[in-house]
Design a binder for these strands. Sequence first.
RNA 1: GCCGGAAUAGCUCAGGGGUAGAGCAAUGCUCUCGUAAAGCAUGGGUCGACAGUUCAAUUCUGUCUUCCGGCUCCA
Length: 586
Amino acid sequence: MADNDDILLKIRHSAAHVMAEAVIQIFPTAKIAIGPAIENGFYYDFDLPRTLTPEDLEEIEKLMKAVIKGKHTFTRQVVSRKEAEAMFKDQPYKLELIAELPEGEEISIYTQGAFTDLCRGPHVANTGEIDPAGVKLLSISSAYWRGDEKREQLQRIYGTAWRNKKELDAHLTMLEEAKKRDHRKLGRDLEIFFFDDEIGPGLPLWMPKGGVIIEELEKLAKEMEAAAGYERVKTPHLTKESLFLKSGHLPYYAESMYPPMELEGTTYYIKPMNCPFHHKIFGCRTRSYRELPLRLAEYGTCYRYEKSGELFGLMRVRSMQMNDAHIYCAEDQFETEFMAVIDMYNAYFKLFGIEKFLMRFSTHGKEGLGKKYVDNEALWLKTEDMVRKVMTKSGIPFTEVADEAAFYGPKIDVQIWSAIGREFTLATNQVDFAVPERFNLKFMNKAGTEETPLCLHRAPLSTHERMIGFLLEHFAGALPVWLSPVQVAVIPVAEPFNGYVAEIEAMLKTKGIRARADLSSDRFNAKIRLAQAEKIPYMMIAGEQEQTKKTVSVRLRTGEQLKDLAQSAFADLVKGKITSRSLSLQ
RNA sequence: GCCGGAAUAGCUCAGGGGUAGAGCAAUGCUCUCGUAAAGCAUGGGUCGACAGUUCAAUUCUGUCUUCCGGCUCCA
């Protein structure tokens, strides 16, 4: 496997160089930036005299294939800094990269045919090792130089590259399949949510079926949180400006907030997060160490003015309902509390069968102290160490990323990927050693002196929006029974059995099962097709035989059939799957 | 927010300087039908919005709005 990855990496990285060569053939004055191999392919960033069109893409692909067929050798050469600077004197982006290479580091260049690039490698030995039928350019987009929105905007060409045509086709088919499980498409087809121009971008409308899913998720959260010692609170959507000044969010966070409202000389803001409200509840009176850990939970609705281009279906919205909670604890309780939160994540992920995720530990960056981060290096180091220890002890794999923390402390984020491959933070668990201080939160410790608690911010079920967006994709719309808006479609074989079917529907409903009889004039086959398209887990079918024997036949959405079940046996089966929140249907 | 693309019926899409079409869905009628699409009929569109060019704009041009692919950013 490692060998495979290795050769694919070389093919992709080499394809990027070949593409750069092709682009330079068309635009001799092109300035080249960087062109790495990425998952499934490669890209290269260019500064070009004009914007590229889809026709250019075809032309570039044609030229690439010609270059590949030329069977040019990739030659590696080590050069001095001076030589490199002379070689790339017309390539400002390369010069910038060279200038940043540390003294003493080897500077290598790779040449194939007429194209030379500053590059660390590795590459295939010869362009002939790339199968031209395994390479395809996918899209043109833009990218900022060095990922900095204040710097030059470059044109990026994305491509995919594989060992051969068969692998390429398989990948393209996979992309097509992924589009079908895109939550934006499923959400509309299954009538779960939609957006309306008159309401506004990023403000989803949840339809009745979406409402069911939300209710079920909240029920789950309530159960889990009650069992873990959380208490539920409710706080307003609005607050005076002074609260966010105190929390430090203004002006730091102002550009992500809806603009202020002025009324009778007072300025109000809509809340982008719940923390300051919960801090107020903690601080409403003197707290005793006996009350800690105090865990305040709320499915709080927040509003954030995300930049227009950042919106993405349900995964990135402007109004969101967060599975929020704040845990106030003493320092010696931190490890247990933090671990309990991680355990809760894992319980949820197991319940949903989420296997592909990454826990990311974000720490501060020294340079941001006093700017991006609260200016207290000792506390940063201390809390980061605490988190690192807990995580290591838990044995859960995680990656550590510097300079990605929240401004008040280190955090563990859970990263997931959308159907089309975009990465998102699903859940988060953040340490806050700074804001309780700002709110002057205190508890009386055993010794009778005042102490400031630590605060954990956590949202294991993310927001309803992102969670449901993710779950729709994760299950390709075929939600587990307990989350399915309609759990049983009750279908008569023909009209004369409508009465029997309605009886069964009523019986299932009294047992708390979401059943829906289809008494329309459609033919029986069409009813099955509709229920199947709606991804209803159970299609309960009844006709002459069932009516006589007082039984039911069941078709699962997987296509399997259960024949001649007693009515009660079927109801018990469904009920069991619901209460156990099972992923299986039988 | 930035770069590029797009917007025609509830959905998927065709069309094109002379005010629009299909399939599915919806509605009505007919039909005694066993595990993924019965038949017939009917209704439905300021062709995203606002300007401009033109005898005439849904079609051409501009601005705006929204969506899509990325970048940046994030629950």
